[in-house]
């Protein structure tokens, strides 16, 4: 069992998830949308908001399902199938709910919601929560912090990429190629945070 966590432990968990083990740059989750939507700042912020919203919800729901349905029924081996279906259904529900109740937010998130189903960061965080045997509160905090880290890295990267558009780059490196190298340098910068949290 886990020892009781103090408030500072949670702070460390948040800092660790955002800076040290950034889900995008250190754990390589969710890279396809990362390169896809990082051409423009508006799309990047839209995606970041959508990810924060869905990832936190998905982390919470999958944890509940795992603890109160799969484990008592000894169905842990079906985890992958269950989780991906939950996420797909959740995205659909969130989409319908926002469309009816918060049309403005729905407009802002737009096409990014359905894309999130195949964002492996969402499934990845859900699986990490279970593998690391986090408690419910830790799951909530970790899912949210990871999502914030994702949005943070995405928006930083987009800022750099908008600058790249206007700089002289050799033809063969244009587009995704230079984007990946840039992401490597950004990842190196995030490496500087390693060791900050023990």
């Amino acid at each position: 069992m886990h020892e009781a966590w103090t408030f500072s432990d949670y702070i460390l968990l948040v800092i660790g998830a955002i800076f040290v083990n950034n889900i995008l740059l250190a754990q390589f989750l969710g890279n396809c949308p990362f390169l896809g939507v990082s051409r423009k700042m508006e799309t990047a912020t839209g995606m970041a908001m959508a990810v924060i919203f869905v990832m936190t919800l998905a982390g919470i729901i999958t944890w509940i399902v795992q603890t109160y349905v799969l484990v008592p029924l000894r169905l842990e081996y079906l985890q992958t199938i269950f989780f991906i279906l939950i996420i797909a259904a959740l995205v659909q529900l969130v989409e319908m709910f926002l469309q009816k109740s918060f049309p403005a937010l729905y407009q802002a998130l737009g096409i990014f919601l359905p894309l999130i189903t195949t964002n492996c960061a969402v499934l990845g965080v859900a699986v990490i929560n279970i593998r690391e045997e986090l408690t419910f509160l830790q799951t909530v905090v970790y899912s949210f912090a990871s999502a914030v880290g994702y949005g943070f890295a995405l928006i930083l990267f987009t800022g750099i990429r908008e600058q790249l558009e206007v700089s002289g780059i050799p033809d063969f490196m244009k587009g995704t190629a230079i984007g990946l190298v840039t992401a490597g340098l950004l990842s190196l910068a995030f490496f500087g945070f390693a060791g900050m949290v023990g």
């Binding site: 740059l25 050799p170 033809d171 990946l180 992401a183 490597g184 190196l188």
Partner: peptide, 21 residues
């Protein structure tokens, strides 16, 4: 550096450039 995350991004980017050439 090469087996750490940054190396992965940089090399994939460079390989993509080579493919373009």
């Amino acid at each position: 550096f090469m087996v750490k995350p940054p190396g992965a991004f940089v090399w994939l980017g460079l390989l993509l450039g080579v493919m373009n050439i």
